[in-house]
Design a protein around this nucleic acid. Sequence first.
DNA 1: GTTAAACTAACGACCGTTCGGTAGGCTAAT
DNA 2: ATTAGCCTACCGAACGGTCGTTAGTTTAAC
Lengths: 197, 197
Amino acid sequence: MSDMKTIIKSVAIDLFFRKGYFATSISDIASGSGIQKASIYYHYASKEDLLFHILESTMDDLTDYLRRCLAAVDGIESRMRAAVRGHVRFHLERQKENFIANSELRGLSAEHYRTIVKKRDAYERIFQDLIRDGSRAGVFTDGDAKILSYAILTLCTAGASWYKTGGRLTVEAIADIYENFIINGLKQGCIGPLEGG
Amino acid sequence: MSDMKTIIKSVAIDLFFRKGYFATSISDIASGSGIQKASIYYHYASKEDLLFHILESTMDDLTDYLRRCLAAVDGIESRMRAAVRGHVRFHLERQKENFIANSELRGLSAEHYRTIVKKRDAYERIFQDLIRDGSRAGVFTDGDAKILSYAILTLCTAGASWYKTGGRLTVEAIADIYENFIINGLKQGCIGPLEGG
DNA sequence: GTTAAACTAACGACCGTTCGGTAGGCTAAT
DNA sequence: ATTAGCCTACCGAACGGTCGTTAGTTTAAC
């Protein structure tokens, strides 16, 4: 990827994060990149194509990262801890892209939307498999794997919306909090109606 | 509020939920309401004014609802359970408005934005006080009340993004799941670094 | 000379908003 | 009882502006 193509992408990530996809114009991205807006179209076919490239690379990198986090880890609880930690790390370290990936799916064409949702579903399925392995082994509670995976992922992903680089808490401290919170939640009988109603 | 004003608002809620604020035009809202777009401006000063009315009434109703849920409940754990259940109920029963309230804040003017964020902060503070009461009494873990409140609220709020009316799970079943998940998380020592690192 | 990478200029579409007008109902004075 | 005036609720048409995109051209490097 050429220099300018990379610059345009990172400027777009910054603007989409700060102002949103629809509120950001091609002119904004161009002036942020130091070129004319027509020149954007030499590097990207359309505004939507630019958004798609951002979302696709983010999803691909996220999935690769998770797989690498899990590659050498054995044991059900350890694998879940590694997965949660990896998810949190990636989302905090590439905060802007992940925020866009979670809020700007509506800007995609129908076809591109399907592509991204497929990647997202595949990613979620990794967590659902971890949950099912755990409940089959009796390590985790026997709850609905889909709902539990949504709960885990949205909980961690939300961190990316309030996290401030250089703030009070480090990435690792936040990862600690979420990792323990989730493992405790999965171990307890957290699913099913209350005894008392 | 006149009939047409109510119709316009509910059509706007539906469209903002499905397509997003910026992707929805005044024409869309008008034709959905069965009037011409110029007539919208008899009822609302601007598109942004319409968004603000939606967000403001949602936040006000949400806070009122929570206060009523807590009014007659005593005991730290019971109050937290009631608050979580109330939050989940409100978000699932008024799914569209709450989704908008969590995703379209950027559409507001600076002044209106401040107004809504103030209301949101006041609402979050109710949960933070419940957490602090609990940790002071030794019922809950001694964690960062702000981060815990974010975790609780985003976890429950996220339910509104995947919940389908008439789906596999009822509102009460989902409320059960989250209520127990969160109480367990708050009771355990879920905050702080792991022993092993 | 070719080609990559940028430029200027313009296009058509659509947007939020405004303006002037009108139909119909209510009120009050004649 | 009629009529004049006003108010509510809406309409048709247009405006200024911005948007994403395209076409054609220039620049600079090899």
